[in-house]
Simulated assay, not measured.
Amino acid sequence: MRAIGRLVLGVAIVAGLTVAGSRAAEEPPASPSEAKAPANVQPPASTVPVTPKDAAPPPSVTIIGASEAHGVLGRDVRSAAGEDMGRIVDVIVDRTGHVRAAAIDFGGFLGVGSRKIVVDWNALRFGKIANKKDSITLELTKAQVAAAPEYKEDTPIVVLGASGSLQPLQAIQ
């Protein structure tokens, strides 16, 4: 019985300290001498703000109008002369995340005999052509693209660029 009595007394003391501490936090001190708290007194746990470890600030939001931007994967690419140059099947970025090139599935018929070639992003023009909504035009001829080496993953990438527009990629270590 004595152990239970001590436990109840201990809980009552802790509860009294918690109530007194929370009241002291709510009420301003009456005089400057009361403002100093002993160094060994901790604030009650109920007054310490708790934030989850996974809490993150809300993301920023940008609204882009439907006519202002569009996806490019799977889009048809045409030459300046209106020739079918294929479809964009991949976008190549460097290690810093900057878009460098586009992989185009070129040639073939219904996917048979086609191959992927890579063209410099700056050789692509995005705009409107009469009677079509948005178009992607490549500043290369069909013969230039046909002569380009095939793109294969995990091999050095040969990027075909419009005359004078391709900048060399600096090695990032």
Rank of each mutant, 00 (worst) to 15 (best):
D84I: 00
P49A: 11
V118G: 02
E150D: 06
T62G: 14
P28I: 00
I64Q: 10
G107C: 00
I157V: 12
V61N: 05
L140D: 03
I117S: 03
T155N: 11
L110Y: 12
F106T: 00
V159A: 07
K152E: 06
R23H: 05
A147T: 10
T137V: 12
P32T: 07
A123C: 03
V158A: 05
A3S: 10
A3C: 11
T155G: 08
H70M: 06
A130E: 06
Q144D: 07
P28L: 06
A148E: 02
F109E: 05
F126P: 03
L160F: 15
A30V: 12
K128F: 01
E139F: 00
T51H: 14
P43A: 13
T141P: 01
I88A: 00
D84Y: 10
Q144I: 14
A81E: 09
D84A: 01
P38R: 13
P59L: 14
I129Y: 02
V8Q: 15
R75P: 04
V112S: 07
E26I: 10
V19Y: 13
S163R: 05
V93Y: 15
G74Y: 03
V41H: 12
T96S: 06
P38Q: 11
P28R: 03
E34A: 13
L9Q: 08
H98K: 14
V89F: 04
F109S: 09
V72E: 02
D105L: 04
V89A: 00
P58Y: 11
T47F: 01
S46K: 11
N122R: 09
A15C: 13
D120V: 04
D94V: 08
S67F: 05
V61A: 13
S163P: 01
T62Y: 11
E139T: 09
A103G: 12
R6L: 14
L166G: 07
S79E: 04
V72P: 03
I172G: 13
W121H: 12
R87I: 03
V77R: 01
V99Q: 01
V89Q: 00
S165F: 10
S33H: 12
G97R: 09
D76K: 06
R87S: 05
G164C: 09
I157H: 03
M85R: 02
A20R: 11
A25K: 05
